[in-house]
């Protein structure tokens, strides 16, 4: 009952199969690319808007982005400004692949909002960095003198510590590394409480004079 197949048949069969599969995937990938890219761009804009508390839908993201966000750059590092603060992009690697995010600072230097996302972290563990619950832990923190780092049982009152994800240690370490890199790049851009103090000290001096 078992059929036998010649070597030639096997070679031709596998070659045809692979070519057909590749063709299907190529055609699909090329034909769907424009709408995929549009979705991705809209998503990036949605993420950036979310850090300053604007919930945009995919349809109005372009418009709201144009109204609220300006793109700037310092020494070739791109960042964004909004009325009342700056937004810095974050890029790094988690356990399984790239992770990224945006961090918005108000003029006072404290974090106004954060968003994170990932390509392939384990759902329910490291993947939790994309949740609102995790992002909200950053609100009110600052990156004035050192980068924010993730820590188990972080001190809520310490402005540089954020609670790490239980079961997602490797991804949490990735987030910490990502924040450190961003701090190196953007420390001149990130507003600082000290600036405010310095400015108010200056103003006091001027008043005294």
């Amino acid at each position: 009952m078992k059929k036998t197949f010649s070597n030639t048949y096997i070679f031709v069969y596998s070659a045809v199969l692979v070519v057909v599969a590749a063709l299907i995937l190529t055609v699909v990938s090329v034909s769907l690319k424009p709408s995929q890219e549009k979705n991705q761009q809209a998503e990036t804009k949605q993420m950036i808007l979310k850090t300053i508390g604007i919930d945009a839908t995919r349809d109005n993201a372009d418009e709201l982005y144009a109204q609220n966000i300006k793109e700037s750059s310092l020494n070739g590092n791109d960042y964004f400004t909004f009325p009342g603060g700056v937004i810095i992009p974050l890029k790094g690697t988690g356990l399984w692949g790239p992770i990224w995010g945006y961090l918005a600072f108000d003029d006072g230097g404290s974090v106004k909002g954060a968003v994170f996302d990932h390509k392939g972290e384990t759902p329910g563990l490291g993947g939790e960095i994309s949740s609102d619950k995790f992002a909200s832990r950053f609100i009110g923190k600052q990156m004035c003198e050192e980068p924010i780092h993730l820590k188990k049982n972080a001190d809520k009152d310490n402005p540089y510590e954020v609670d790490a994800i239980s079961g997602g240690t490797m991804t949490s370490n990735g987030v910490t590394a990502m924040l450190a890199t961003a701090y190196e790049k953007y420390s001149d851009v990130i507003p600082c409480y000290e600036d405010c103090e310095a400015i108010s000290a200056l103003m006091m001096e001027e008043e005294e004079q």
């Binding site: 299907i24 995937l25 699909v28 709408s35 995929q36 995919r58």
Partner: peptide
């Protein structure tokens, strides 16, 4: 092929 195909279509239409 099947899985990648489905993922591509979803990425374009139900992101």
């Amino acid at each position: 092929t099947l899985v990648v195909l489905v993922d591509q279509v979803l990425k374009a239409y139900v992101y």
